[in-house]
């Protein structure tokens, strides 16, 4: 009791009135109280990797959807004279970015050989002389579009399916679960391939096949969570008060499902991106002359030994996209569930 040194006057021993006491109220000096989402956001912000991933994704989104402003060339314009040119960034003289290439042991200026004049290609050109940079941007846009579409079906179909199945219970639930079980016993990729064959390869076939396969996991998780929530007191109270099922779903279920939904969404997206790239890679996805990261990697792979940049760049962009979504997903999961890290 260090502060005992201070002299105590007898006047100190008079009772404190109730009004004075309210000034002492501890509530007023407490740390700011945070809602669940604010608290999650605070934790997410502290997660450096997740924030970097978020920024990378934002940049990729801007580049891909604003590609009209960034594209230096038409992604589909072929120019056989300027085929297989290495990357050249004006003003940078580092091997790999200065338009030179190793040919039988000596470094030669590929642009001069091709009489390219003042033209430059940031990431070089492919075997038909198409600008790789523009094609990668275009492919990224396709990947991100697929990501958005998959998210849409996940939310519109998966969440609703899960809530209905979990909330209704009984026979409806049993039937809905059987359907999911059957869907689960066929590898997703096989379903997609079958659908694409029926619908003819292309963007719309990929979209349909993703629509049919992507929502299943979401539906299962949402159902499980709904079953758990259904028997909790606050839901029972709402039911006892006679609120309609629809109102309960929106007012009570959805907010409590939000973390499950967001986390699962973050894992649906990279899966969808992967499937599109995969299908395009094996040759039944996006078809020429349109570019997709999968087709670019497939094209680049053929020349990998001699022109490695043709595969490296699309592969890096695809991997960065997947890594960023996965890290962000991990970060979100950790921030929604404080137990899992910290």
């Amino acid at each position: 009791m260090a502060d005992n040194a201070k002299p105590i006057s007898t006047g100190d021993f008079k009772p404190v009135t109730a009004a004075d006491r309210s000034h002492l109220d501890s509530e007023k000096i407490s740390a700011p109280s945070l809602t669940f989402l604010q608290d999650s956001w605070r934790r997410l912000r502290k997660n450096k990797a997740a924030m970097i991933a978020l920024i990378v994704l934002i940049i990729l989104f801007i580049l891909a959807f604003g590609s009209g402003f960034f594209e230096t060339h038409n992604p589909n314009a072929t120019n056989p004279n300027l085929a297989n040119l290495p990357p050249k960034i004006p003003g940078i003289d580092i091997n790999g970015f200065n338009g030179t290439i190793m040919q039988s042991g000596t470094r030669v200026n590929a642009y001069a050989q091709a009489h390219a004049g003042n033209a430059y290609y940031l990431l070089g050109t492919d075997y038909l002389g198409r600008d790789l940079f523009s094609r990668i941007l275009y492919g990224t846009r396709i990947s991100l579009e697929i990501a958005l579409i998959a998210s849409f079906f996940d939310l519109a179909f998966g969440v609703v399916y899960g809530i209905v199945s979990g909330w209704m219970g009984g026979r409806v639930d049993t039937i809905m679960q059987r359907i999911i079980e059957i869907m689960l016993s066929i590898p997703n990729l096989v379903v997609m391939v079958l659908l694409i064959l029926v619908l003819k390869p292309g963007m719309s076939a990929i979209i349909y096949s993703i629509a049919i396969t992507s929502w299943i996991n979401m539906a299962r998780l949402v159902r499980a969570q709904t079953l758990e929530l259904k028997n909790q007191e606050f839901i029972l109270a709402a039911r006892a008060l006679g609120e309609s099922s629809l109102k309960i779903s929106f007012k009570h279920l959805l907010p409590n499902l939000s973390s499950v939904i967001i986390i699962n969404l973050m894992f649906t997206i990279p899966t969808a991106i992967f499937f599109e790239a995969f299908l395009s890679y094996i040759g039944i996805g996006i078809s020429a002359p349109q570019a997709s990261l999968g087709t670019l990697i497939n094209d680049g792979q053929k020349n990998f030994q001699f022109l490695p940049y043709q595969m490296w760049y699309p592969a890096i962009v695809l991997s960065v996209l997947m890594i960023a979504f996965n890290i962000l997903g991990d970060g979100l999961r950790d921030s929604f569930d404080p137990k899992s890290r910290e």
Partner: peptide
């Protein structure tokens, strides 16, 4: 890294 890099790459 291993979960993100596609198998074909």
């Amino acid at each position: 890294l291993l979960v993100s890099i596609p198998s074909f790459v």
